[in-house]
Structures are given as structure tokens and as C-alpha cells.
Write a protein that binds this DNA or RNA. Structure first.
Lengths: 248, 248
DNA sequence: CGTTGATTTGATGCCATTCAACTGTTGTGG
DNA sequence: CCACAACAGTTGAATGGCATCAAATCAACG
């Protein structure tokens, strides 16, 4: 499903895994809509350290920042198909079609909300970042009980501002506690004991859904969802309160 | 100077220092334009830890994220005057006046770029975050040789994901090296020695301005600016390369 | 089978936090 | 005017979490 444009706008290109879609300091005169695969934005420092500022899945759009030159490079994490649209053409469309302008603002605002979440995530402990990452992936990749992670440990580490060793240890810690089962690049969620203290469960419900469950049934239904399983992981991390990280 | 709206839209309110402008989980049906003073967005966790996701100065607009409920609270850092505009009214304006829609998108995209920068900043060492913070403040508050910091050490710490002690030590370290002079809430920049290695200076120029200096004169001129003085601080932090953090 | 890259595991060290004491400032009321 | 409390900021010492370095394990592939 293409949100931003239709078949008659822009060009579609395919990128092999690890190939660059655009470079740092390239003129930022285009936006890039992911059609298939996974893409990320990276910044590489002279000392070799790499930071990943965001992952992008089908339907997401890169390059919405209001800047002259890309502060970050765009890179394909897996083989990826991307629609490239010139901002100029897009602006022309937007001024003629109000819905396009609306959609553009909406996409930018959503991206802003995601970056907000990332900022909040980055000022937490290593284990909390890892759980937060799993929660984000579960929400964004319409996961069932199995979360497929297209990116490497190294990518996750660069995204979370950690080392890949710490990420590895963090995953293993969750597995040791019986919360997940690691199968290569996919994480299988195991149902939590959830014994006793239902008040805590209600708190978690509220933290993720934004309101308290109105009926027992509503709570039980939600507890069966993968989001709930991940959210309850937060209990394992001595985390008192996560706040609202789940939206739309 | 009011970017977003004119005198006939929204209402203007004044908030005392530390007062809340909007709360976490309040319906996000309004945007808030800072007219005077300084404002920030905060998230408070149950364990008492606080995170600041952004500072906002006159001309900046809060609440542009595309969400139903505010994920963060808005709080006045100093006494602040704020224009409050309902999103509904704004959308009505935007659909009739194309320039308003443009301005709205531009503001959101700028905010997105700022959050990008913050994400990159947060995955660095304590000292680098502190220098990066000074650089951001110098750029955003049209500073001369003196940067006025309206916020407390505690606020800076919560913004950078550090403790206030670490921030204090970081400032003192810069003072010890002769880079700044601390005067309560204002930081006086002292011109850097800049002796020798002009190649390094050119690198810093490029990192901040985005292109290499074309003439010696251009380099010298820039070196006299407060931005340059702060940028050269990065030399002091064993930081090999900062990348482009200065825009518009 | 050897090579290469990805991940896990282990040992050690450093940086930032934590806890604590102390200084300086501001405001309040007698 | 002074005593006192409350707050902001600085400084010091000890702890611990995460990075770093190093090595082992494992899978994929020619």
C-alpha cells in the first residue's frame, strides 16, 4: 500500500543489502518511500563509530526533514525497493491536491513522534533500551508471537547507542528469564506467567494503551496480544513505569 | 516575531516559572507557540526520574506531533508567554491559506531535524553531550560571546540523560582548560588558542558549515564567531569528528 | 574443509552514577 | 539586621554498569 504517491509519481529503484540509497551531505531534494524491505539512516563518524537514527519499513518515508543537505545517509538493511520522489514535484502536487499536503504533514508529524520516543528511549539503561526496541519492532512490524528482526545485532546496537555485545547479553538475559526464545534473527515471545498481581497488569495496560481497561474481558484479550507480552517484559527490568510508547 | 499565526488567532497566556502549560496525556488538540521566555517538554517516570525532550524559545512551536494525547508535558522554564491555537482552527486556516500549510509543514520538519540531532547527541559521551548542548544553545539563542542559559543544571542533565553532577563537572572541565568562563547561568566563551594546525580548523569549519572554507579570509571571519569558538571546543574532547549539527 | 562473517561468552577497566558533604545564594519572618 | 530554611551548585569518594579487548562458537558458502 502506497501512502504518499501513486504509480505515476517518482521512480522506483531496488537496492541490494547494505547499499547506500543516499549519502551524508547529498542534497536533500528528494524523499524516499520504502515499498519493500527495510532501510535505515546512519551517520558514520571519522573514528568509525556508526549511529543509526531510524529504521524504516514499507510505508515509511525518509528525508522529510527540512534541511538543504542530508545529515544522515540512507542505507538498505535488506534488499529494498524504494520510490524516489523529488520534493519539487511533491510540492507541486501538494499545492494542487490538498490531500497530498495533508498526508505529507501527517507523515512528518508521525516521524517526529517516533523520534520523540527514541529520545526518551536513549536516556534509559541498556536493558530498558533493548526491551523498548523489541516493543517498537513488535508495534511497527505487525508482529504475531514472533518478531522478525531484519537487522543485525550490530545495527540494533548502533541504533540504541550500545555495543553489540551488550545487545547480545541483553537478549540472552531475557531468554534466561523465560521471556523470549532467540532463534537467529527472530525473537519468539513466550507467554508471561502473569500470575497474581493483576493491578500491575492494569498499570501496564494503561501505560501502553493510554487508558485503563474497562472490563476484565478487555484486559484478558489484550494480554493475549504480542504487544502485551513485550510490555510485560518491562516488569522484568525493574522498570517502574514506562509511559505511553504505543500509538496508532 | 510570530511565525505561525497572527494576532487574530488563538489566545495568549502567561505562565510563571515551573508552571505546567499542558500535562502528559492531555488531549493534543492544540499547538503552542512560544512568544517570550523558555519552555520545555518533560516526561516524568514513576520512580521520579525526569526526562526533557526539548527546549523551546520564542518562535518555536510545541505540540506538532501527530498524536491523540500529549506524550509529554509542557512546562515553563522561565516566565513565559505562549500563544495557544486549536489544531482545528489551524487546519481550517491551512486549507484556505496555502502559506499557513507550508509554514506548518516547515515548522514540523524543523522540529524533526532538531530531534534527529538530539538522537545523535544522546549516543555520545558525557563531555561530548555537554559541548553539543552548548553548541545548540549558541545556535538557537543568537548568542554573542556570552551564552545565557535560562535553565538549571538539573534541566540540562535531564535533557542530556546525565546527572546534574556530571554536567557540573563537565562545565568545570571546560573552564579548567580555559575554554569557557562560568558565571552562574551564563557561559562566557573565551577565544581558543587556535595555534598551529589550521587543517584541523578547516575540518571543524566543514563540520559545522557544511563546506570547506574557500578563502583564508572566510575561515578567519568565521573563527571570530561564537559558533566557531564552541565548535573548537570539540577538539578538547578528543572528538575526532562531529558531523553537521549546524543548520539554518 | 578452510574461510569468512555473525554472534556469544568471558575478563578487565573506565566512565558516569550514586551518595554525601559542603559552599554560596535567596528568601522569610522575627 | 540577623537567624534560619530552602534551593542551586560544586566537590569528593565509592560503586557499578557498560565498553573494551579477546577468544570461542556457529553457520553459510565456495
Amino acid at each position: 500500500m502506497l501512502y504518499l504517491s501513486n504509480k505515476h509519481v517518482g521512480v522506483v529503484r531496488t537496492y541490494r543489502c547494505k547499499n547506500e540509497i543516499f549519502r551524508e551531505d547529498d542534497p536533500a531534494d528528494r524523499v524516499y518511500e520504502v515499498i519493500k524491505g527495510t532501510v535505515c539512516t546512519t551517520k558514520t563518524l571519522r573514528d568509525g563509530k556508526r549511529q543509526i537514527a531510524g529504521f524504516y519499513f514499507p510505508g515509511d518515508v525518509l528525508g522529510l526533514e527540512n534541511v538543504a543537505k542530508h545529515p544522515l545517509a540512507g542505507q538498505a538493511i535488506t534488499e529494498a525497493r524504494v520510490r524516489i520522489v523529488k520534493k519539487q514535484a511533491l510540492n507541486a502536487l501538494a499545492s494542487s491536491d490538498c490531500k497530498v499536503a495533508d498526508r505529507l504533514l501527517s507523515l512528518t508529524a508521525r516521524e517526529l513522534a517516533r523520534k520523540q520516543d527514541l529520545v526518551l528511549l536513549l536516556s534509559r539503561s541498556a536493558q530498558e533500551r533493548i526491551v523498548g526496541f523489541l516493543l517498537e519492532m513488535a508495534q511497527r512490524t505487525s508482529a504475531t508471537d514472533r518478531i522478525e528482526l531484519p537487522m543485525h545485532r550490530r545495527d540494533i546496537a548502533d541504533y540504541l547507542g550500545l555495543t553489540l555485545e551488550t545487545v547480545s547479553r541483553g537478549f540472552w538475559d531475557l531468554e534466561r528469564r523465560g521471556a523470549i526464545k532467540i532463534a537467529k534473527r527472530s525473537i519468539v515471545l513466550r507467554s508471561q506467567p502473569a500470575n497474581g498481581r493483576t493491578e500491575v497488569l492494569r498499570d501496564i495496560f494503561e501505560a501502553v494503551k493510554g487508558c485503563r481497561p474497562k472490563t476484565e474481558h478487555e484486559l484478558d484479550d489484550w494480554l493475549a496480544s504480542p504487544q502485551a507480552k513485550i510490555a510485560t517484559l518491562f516488569n522484568l527490568t525493574s522498570l517502574s513505569y514506562w509511559g505511553e510508547r504505543a500509538r496508532s
